[in-house]
Design a protein around this nucleic acid. Structure first.
Lengths: 184, 184
DNA sequence: GCCACCATGTAATCGGTTACATGATTAA
DNA sequence: TTAATCATGTAACCGATTACATGGTGGC
């Protein structure tokens, strides 16, 4: 992330954090506690170089990629070994264990999932508004993926919610989405 | 996860690991290095209790929830504070940075995403086959969500792949999915 | 006899977050 | 004047993985 954002024109650790928070954050977060020490390590290893360039009396250490850093970045992008993929989703975990509660309570958990995705979607759309109409590049593509992903989720959870609602109202013995197929 | 799986009937640390690997793993993983020490901690805190029950000469320490453990589990399930949600997706990160490579290379990254999701989907369908036709419960619902999620991904990445292919062949200046709207 | 599976654990290490400390600049 | 933003950093801690160590059981 650090090499990549430097490659896209970020300069300071602060800027890397700021940009990551509105872009890669959704699929790869970063905190100051990582960024600053890591920048020093990358400098030591020759992948980036820095200069002291205070703005007024305010300290500032803009970094840029070295040729070696560029190469390492491109090498990573082209490497095609199994990419890391990891999700921690507490909401989904609760749905998984929903049968440990009373029959009716699963609906609450499902409604919560729907709501949370709606909230995240609103947040993403706000980011999309902000970037406005800059030339469509790969970073924008990732944003559009995020939005499409959230839209799909809202639809899926909403439809499940409706289904459970119907079952509840018809007073029948609960069934876990046995008829779920057309989620398209 | 540990309390939950004990609640669903798992007994030993080994069994918790085995079940987690084919169920919660996708949205909440667990390793031996966590499970065994954590079981001891939970025992110390009175949330679970264990007995020594060797099977033949093979050591075995089956655990079960105490009333307190049950209560803690239900309390967690009902607590409605912001649930943790975290993704690390290296493939998507590469797509995000794709413009740092040559124009044509983004397509490779996108194709890779499509392929990886296809692979995961196949894996999930195999799990679905395995569970066969047991009564539809919440754990199965989570599996169906996973499958639907992967299917949606395959569709999305496949359609993007086709679009980029068209643009490449028509020799035009590349554009990042400017027309992407109907991902439904 | 061998392999897959059952079963329990630990040590080293890592990647990462949280909270804190510090302070200058700029726009309302 | 005050709040938001720019800017750099560290210490303590935590959650988690990896790799290792050990050994019994059951089926082919």
């Amino acid at each position: 992330v650090i090499l990549g954002l430097l490659g896209l024109g970020a300069e300071t650790g602060y800027e890397i954090k700021r940009i990551a928070d509105i872009s890669t954050r959704f699929f790869w977060g970063a905190s100051y506690g990582q960024i600053y020490p890591e920048l020093r390590r990358l400098e030591r290893d020759g992948l980036v170089e820095a200069s002291e360039a205070p703005r007024g009396g305010r300290a500032r250490r803009p970094y840029r990629l070295t040729a070696q850093g560029r190469a390492a970045l491109e090498d990573w992008l082209r490497r095609d070994d199994e990419p890391l993929f990891d999700i921690r989703d507490e909401g989904l975990l609760k749905v998984f264990f929903a049968d440990l509660l009373e029959p009716g309570e699963r609906l609450q958990l499902v409604a919560r999932m729907r709501r949370d995705h709606e909230l995240r979607l609103r947040h993403f759309r706000a980011i999309e508004e902000d970037v406005g109409s800059r030339p469509p590049d790969s970073t924008l593509l990732a944003l559009r993926y995020g939005i499409a992903y959230l839209e799909w989720n809202v639809r899926w959870w909403r439809s499940l919610e409706r289904e459970l609602n119907r079952e509840d109202r018809s007073g029948s013995s609960r069934q876990a989405g046995s008829s779920r197929a057309g989620s398209r």
